[in-house]
Amino acid sequence: MASAQLALNDVSIGFGDGVLLSKVNLSVMPGECVVLVGPSGKGKTVLLKLFAGLLKPTLGQVQIEDKDLNQLAPHEQKQLLLKMGMLFQKNALFDSLSVGENIAFPLREKTKLSEAEIQERVVYFLEQVGIGHARLLYPDEISGGMQKRLGIARALALKPQIVLYDDPTAGLDPITSRLIVDLILRLRAENKSTVIAVTNDMVRAYQMADRIAMVVDGEIVITGNKAQTLAHQDPRVVQFVRGQLHGPLTESQ
């Protein structure tokens, strides 16, 4: 049996005096797409940032390709993280750079490609995400949906094996959301990449996920694929996926 490409082993993390996640475990197999869902502020983005090395756990191990991320030397950690791309919740586009330059930036910084090759790749990625016409514009001159597409293109610029998407459809209309998720799935199939995505949009979660995991009350509840999630017995999962007003999630607030 193949080993997990990404894994959390008994990971705990908290901020201040509070504990956000307590001894959570999660394994993601190569090529798999795991979607994290759950109420806001319960640690979904924190989980992505743990995988991305942007946060360190208080306890436990974050493993990438069987290596403990936080025990590696800084240069080894950087090399490992270059296998990852991330779409941030707020896109994190460099607003002083044009659309094309946002994609060229990681290529200039982290590859030895010639300028002509970089420009070729910029054009390729912009065409892939359907915003080739906006190459010379700046991020604040394009729509929210185009910014998401640009964020995705930049996350994929270094051809990462693992892609983390933090709420890729947040603030988008249903049609644009659908287009973005279709794009994510197409690029995932083309690049054969492993994907972890965070969303609260259950329709998109079902569309994307091989497995769904719910982050709630400091733990991760693996609910399985769409059918298994819909049939799940945990009352918190039932309330969340059905969007019910009354139940354990709202009682605890």
Partner: peptide, 10 residues
């Protein structure tokens, strides 16, 4: 999160 994006790029 632009600073985080820089960190992600090493």
């Amino acid at each position: 999160e632009q600073v985080d994006a820089l960190r992600m790029l090493g």
